[in-house]
């Protein structure tokens, strides 16, 4: 809340910001391609389901990076990029919650009911 403090370590926002939105268009094309590939993989009859499931999950994960880097300007910050650290930690805990819960609640496949 104090007067804006000047810090030496400035953000680095992409050079194309004032010109044609190349990065955004690249991002959009990528997201469309990734989504279409996932859809194709899911409805295709080729390959084992487990393999295809991992593939579509990987494609979804790739989209996170498209959004973060090409749309959300994640690299911008004054000073240290604490928000990146926060997101990394959030990703770790998200994986912990999802994979941990599945591991715990599947009872090694020996549910009694």
């Amino acid at each position: 809340m104090t007067v804006s403090h000047q810090q030496a370590n400035r953000r680095s926002h992409s050079a194309g910001d004032h010109g044609f939105p190349w990065s955004h268009i690249a991002g959009y094309i990528l997201s469309v391609v990734l989504t279409a590939s996932a859809l194709w993989l899911a409805v295709a009859h080729a390959g084992r389901p487990v393999w295809r499931l991992s593939a579509i999950l990987s494609l979804a994960s790739a989209q996170i990076f498209v959004q973060l880097f090409l749309f959300m300007h994640i690299t911008e910050s004054h000073g240290p990029r604490y928000h990146v650290l926060a997101l990394v930690l959030a990703a770790v805990f998200t994986l912990t919650v999802v994979m941990g819960s599945i591991w715990i609640m599947s009872f090694n496949g020996t549910q009694a009911y």
Partner: peptide, 21 residues
């Protein structure tokens, strides 16, 4: 603070999630 996120099952060991868990 990070470790404490990896211990929650000790509140319900008796649920019997399995020896590995």
């Amino acid at each position: 603070s990070v470790l404490s996120y990896f211990v929650w099952v000790h509140h319900f060991f008796t649920m019997g999630a399995g020896p590995d868990v």
